[in-house]
């Protein structure tokens, strides 16, 4: 009985013993932790700074740090996609948005709302719970980073276009819809109103100008 109990406990102990512990980190782990600390610090500055443009610039640091983490996890293609899409376009879009809404340069005292302390309590509680659960669940789990890279461009293209073609194409349709929607939403009403009323008068059967023109007239 005792022997079977020990044997049932054994796999976890053996797994913990056969792998390196926290006290003998590898170089990849040290690099991961250091970059992770920098990423987390940049993210914290992003959500707490009172200068809006600085928040966007610190977001670049956070997203670039995440790209380095992807590289350390051998997901090369995703790392470069992260750099291209997030650092290259999303942050630029955010900066454009900040400029177009005439965000104040310099400190703005009303960047945070009144429920800051409630938000802090919720975030700290969620962080404590999540970290506790995650550490408790994956204490004895190690990632094997050796062997062929699992996220190289060749491997990514292979699995993306061999197994994920249909979601890929559906996603391109979604991107097209988002593009059209963004253009429709951000079109200025006053400038297009004279152009929109003319085809409505000439072609009363057309549906699309009819649906959008009264909305633009009210603006």
């Amino acid at each position: 009985m005792i022997a079977t109990g020990v044997a049932s406990l054994d796999p976890a102990l053996a797994a913990a013993a056969s792998h390196p512990g926290f006290l003998s980190p590898t170089g990849v782990e040290i690099a991961f932790v250091l970059v992770g600390i920098a990423t987390l610090g940049a993210a914290l500055v992003t959500v707490t700074t009172r200068q809006l443009v600085h928040a966007a610039l610190w977001l670049i640091v956070a997203l670039g740090g995440l790209a380095v983490e992807y590289l350390l996890l051998t997901a090369e293609f995703i790392a470069w996609v992260q750099v291209l899409i997030y650092v290259g376009s999303v942050v630029v879009l955010l900066l454009f948005g900040l400029m177009l809404t005439r965000a104040p340069i310099g400190r703005s005292p009303d960047a945070d709302s009144e429920n800051r302390w409630t938000a802090l309590a919720v975030a700290v509680a969620a962080a404590g719970t999540l970290v506790w659960v995650v550490v408790d669940a994956f204490r004895t789990t190690w990632i094997e980073l050796d062997g062929p890279a699992q996220g190289s461009t060749e491997a990514t293209g292979s699995f993306l276009f061999r197994h994920w073609v249909l979601p890929f194409e559906a996603l391109s349709v979604l991107l097209l819809a988002a593009l059209v929607g963004a253009i429709v939403l951000s079109r200025r009403g006053r400038e297009t109103a004279p152009g929109a009323t003319a085809p409505r008068a000439s072609a009363p059967g057309a549906n699309a100008p009819r649906a959008t023109a009264p909305r633009e007239d009210k603006r």
Partner: peptide
């Protein structure tokens, strides 16, 4: 690499974003 490192980093980043969503005023 220990799996806890990326998992803990992801949890902390998520909670940082959660704080930002709840506490920020500018859209």
């Amino acid at each position: 690499m220990h799996l806890a490192y990326p998992a803990v980093l992801a949890a902390l980043l998520f909670c940082t974003g959660l704080y930002g969503v709840l506490a920020r005023r500018n859209a």
